[in-house]
């Protein structure tokens, strides 16, 4: 059975130790976490965790059941396979030699990202998008010289019926 990427959206009690329970479940049972992002929802008692894992279908079924079994987990949804929007964000510090500056700004324009910090020898870009867009911009910036990068995990929500 082939392993595929699955995006899970998990609502949990916003309490200390809950993230550790989830991370511990994944490490203890040998599941992998490709990315993880956590933040409070509009209800301060509830947090949303968006977690990306790679697994085959029976393992994903087991992961979802195991997550559900945790007392602090309120809801588990799998987004993969349904209609959803996903985003991740990156801050990319790219080398900006004079001869490259115009090209960087052109890329910024094409990808509709922002320059959020400028220095003598670098630009810091803020990029938001799905995985495809992230990969594309990184490929273009790599030859110019990426000094540092900070990326969030994927966040995602179901699309509502139109």
């Amino acid at each position: 059975m082939t392993e595929q990427k699955h995006i899970l959206s998990i609502l949990v009690d916003n309490q200390p130790g809950v993230l550790s329970r989830i991370a511990g479940l994944f490490s203890g049972r040998g599941y992998n976490i490709e990315s993880l992002s956590v933040a409070e929802t509009t209800d301060p008692l509830v947090s949303r965790i968006t977690l990306v894992t790679k697994a085959n279908a029976p393992v994903v079924e087991q992961i979802m059941k195991q997550l559900h079994k945790l007392i602090n987990v309120i809801k588990v949804h799998e987004l993969t396979g349904s209609s959803y929007v996903q985003r991740e964000m990156a801050l990319i510090k790219v080398q900006a030699r004079p001869e490259h500056r115009a090209e960087i700004l052109r890329i910024v324009d094409i990808f509709r990202c922002k320059v959020v910090d400028v220095g003598q020898g670098h630009y810091t870009l803020e990029v938001t998008g799905d995985e495809g867009k992230m990969d594309a911009i990184l490929n273009l910036l790599k030859p110019i010289g990426i000094k540092e990068i900070a990326k969030t995990g994927i966040i995602a929500l179901f699309r509502e019926p139109k």
Partner: peptide, 13 residues
Amino acid sequence: VGITRPCTKHNYL
């Protein structure tokens, strides 16, 4: 609480 997290049904501090 940290030590017994994976071997309790639930735990509290």
